[in-house]
Amino acid sequence: MAELQYGNSGQPIFIEDRALAHLKIVIATKLRRQESFTLSWNHPDEGLGSKSTIWIHPSIPLRFSFDEPEPPPLNARWIEELMKDAGSTGGICLIDEVPEVAEPKR
């Protein structure tokens, strides 16, 4: 399980390594552009409807920590969906992986 350390709270946000690898791409892209947005995720172990949201801003310290030393292969379609969410008024809601569309055989 990977960790997202945000701000000075000392309270890590636990996210699956593969999901955080994809989020990292989106977050880094948005912050490089000096764009702020929200990031929301569910807490399935804490009961129905339990959710958290944070405001991601370039001035707030951020650290990604992964269990796996090598990054996983990236799913471009999932990154596209997360980027689209990041640009919306609702911000990113961490979703399950979006399957990549297989290229049609010729």
Rank of each mutant, 00 (worst) to 15 (best):
M1K: 04
M1Q: 04
A2R: 12
L4N: 02
L4F: 02
Q5N: 13
Q5R: 15
Y6D: 03
Y6F: 12
G7Y: 01
G7M: 04
S9T: 14
G10A: 06
G10D: 06
G10R: 09
G10S: 07
G10M: 07
G10Q: 06
G10L: 11
G10P: 05
Q11Y: 12
Q11E: 14
P12N: 11
I13S: 00
I15C: 01
E16R: 05
R18Y: 06
R18P: 00
L20S: 10
A21T: 08
A21W: 12
K24A: 12
I25W: 02
V26R: 14
V26M: 13
A28R: 15
A28I: 12
T29R: 14
T29L: 11
T29N: 15
K30P: 01
L31E: 07
L31C: 13
R32L: 12
R32N: 11
R33N: 11
R33H: 09
R33M: 09
S36V: 08
T38E: 04
L39F: 03
W41F: 02
D45Q: 13
E46G: 08
G47K: 00
L48N: 10
G49D: 01
K51H: 10
S52M: 03
T53E: 14
T53D: 06
T53C: 03
T53R: 01
I54G: 10
W55H: 15
W55F: 15
I56M: 15
H57R: 10
H57L: 11
P58R: 07
P58G: 10
S59D: 08
S59E: 07
S59M: 07
I60R: 11
P61R: 03
R63I: 06
S65K: 15
S65W: 14
S65I: 15
D67Q: 14
E68Y: 10
E68N: 15
P69S: 03
E70P: 04
P71K: 01
P72Q: 08
P72V: 12
P73M: 05
P73L: 10
L74Y: 13
L74W: 11
N75L: 03
N75S: 05
N75M: 04
A76I: 11
I79R: 08
E80V: 06
E80Q: 15
E81W: 06
M83E: 15
M83Y: 04
K84W: 08
D85T: 09
D85G: 12
A86P: 13
A86K: 05
S88T: 09
T89A: 15
G90P: 05
G91T: 09
G91S: 11
G91P: 05
I92W: 01
I92A: 01
I92T: 06
L94R: 07
I95V: 10
I95K: 15
D96H: 07
D96Y: 05
V98M: 04
P99A: 02
E100D: 14
V101Y: 05
A102W: 08
E103L: 13
E103V: 13
R106I: 13
